[in-house]
Design a binder for these strands. Structure first.
Lengths: 233, 233
DNA sequence: TTTTATTTGTCCGTATGTATA
DNA sequence: TTATACATACGGACAAATAAA
């Protein structure tokens, strides 16, 4: 058994035992190499293996921190983030980081069945549970249909409330594509996970009651922090 | 930009360009460190980042090899592996590695709605496309209902054919749970990916036409080699 | 606001172990 | 059996980000 594996298992057990609770900072690499009597690189190897399992994540200049526990996330016809997280006994919140209007890309126009010159509203943000980022999202809406959406989002601070203001009361999920990928730096920052951590990318098209596409959304779920469940209604 | 990042990007581009086709062996670490004029550890760092994205995988004493291309995998009410892969223009096959009968675990009994003492047939194997493992699976069936299943599987070499022999002609997916996780060593071996590669674990319950659970199956998809699509029927 | 010490990230070099061909 | 190639471990140095003074 490799040294770094044994060290990683020891740390993993100590984290599981609650010696280092979620959010806590581990001892520095220097302190750990003293404790285990090994070179700092061996400690780094062990920590990296834990980071790949989303057990911990490192922040340069700050330290290595214990990551939070997983959450369940039902992926049905309707997505209700707040209800899902609250049902899990956690405190949900949403942070909208950007709202802008620009011409649709080819993929967006295709998914929303718009002609090439059409504009779209783009909304970006993160979804949190107990203050911990669970997912980052980017949603694209046809600007022609929802002219007042950006103002409504700024006023209401909620996407579903803003859509309701724009006359859209209900919408359902038409298709979802799921891929596992490694988090690019920007995403790792937004989700507060390690770089090269695994994320679950979900690309979905939502349609209104008449089957007309109203939203083209991409959500990146933070790796092992989330379990998606799929079940027919 | 870090040296190892630049080297990883260069290699990624060369692999994408077809300079190193799927299955091909990359130059040795020593050769690559000569070519890029860096230390071997820097090459190792770059290769490891590619291995984490399932672009390549290393085999000690043998070399570093390019992994196969991604596949699309629809996740509907019915799962038809052969049809899915064939629709992608690839050659599907299935390898059954183990068939055994044993008492049901608590989770299995719960999912299949059996009492504690009931026995189950367990079938394990891998699904391949063009000879490359795409997924590993473990399926659990109630032994009481499908008494002749193990013999039928051995005789027919196909699970769906064996189930048909046992009187089950159609079954649909009731619920699926999806998680991203890191591949344990045994799984990494079965899927022929690197250890600590990302895999998509799918746990599903299949029911017959009357809604009675008939199969409790877990499938591990090989990381980024697969895209799952979810759409309501 | 600026400086300074701390902490992680990257890179080089060397040596030895172990699986593979 | 031998040479090759990856895996592990140690040592040192500096860069970059962070946080506290």
């Amino acid at each position: 058994m490799a040294l770094w594996t044994a060290i990683a298992e020891t740390l993993r057990a100590e984290i599981a035992a609650g010696l280092y609770p979620p959010g806590a900072r581990l001892p520095t690499e220097a302190a750990l190499s003293d404790r285990f009597g090994v070179n700092r690189h061996t400690i780094r190897h062990a920590l990296k293996s834990l980071a790949e399992g989303d057990i911990v994540h490192a922040r340069r200049g700050a330290g290595v921190f214990v990551t939070a526990r997983p959450a369940v996330y039902p992926l049905g016809r309707r997505v209700r983030f707040h209800r899902n997280i609250a049902a899990d006994g956690r405190s949900p919140s949403r942070r909208i980081t950007r709202v802008e209007t620009r011409p649709a890309s080819e993929a967006e126009a295709g998914a929303l069945r718009l002609d090439g010159a059409a504009e779209v509203h783009v909304v970006e943000g993160t979804s949190l549970a107990d203050g911990q980022p669970l997912a980052a999202f980017q949603s694209v809406f046809p600007a022609g249909r929802f002219a007042g959406l950006p103002a409504a989002i700024r006023a209401r601070g909620s996407i579903s409330a803003a859509l309701s203001d724009c006359g859209l009361t209900d919408y359902t999920r038409a298709e979802t594509r799921l891929t596992a990928q490694l988090a690019p730096p920007v995403l790792a920052l937004a989700l507060q996970v390690a770089e090269r951590a695994a994320v679950l990318r979900s690309v979905a098209v939502n349609v209104d009651a008449d089957g007309v596409p109203v939203e083209y959304g991409t959500t990146w779920f933070a790796g092992e922090r989330v379990t998606l469940t799929v079940s027919p209604d």
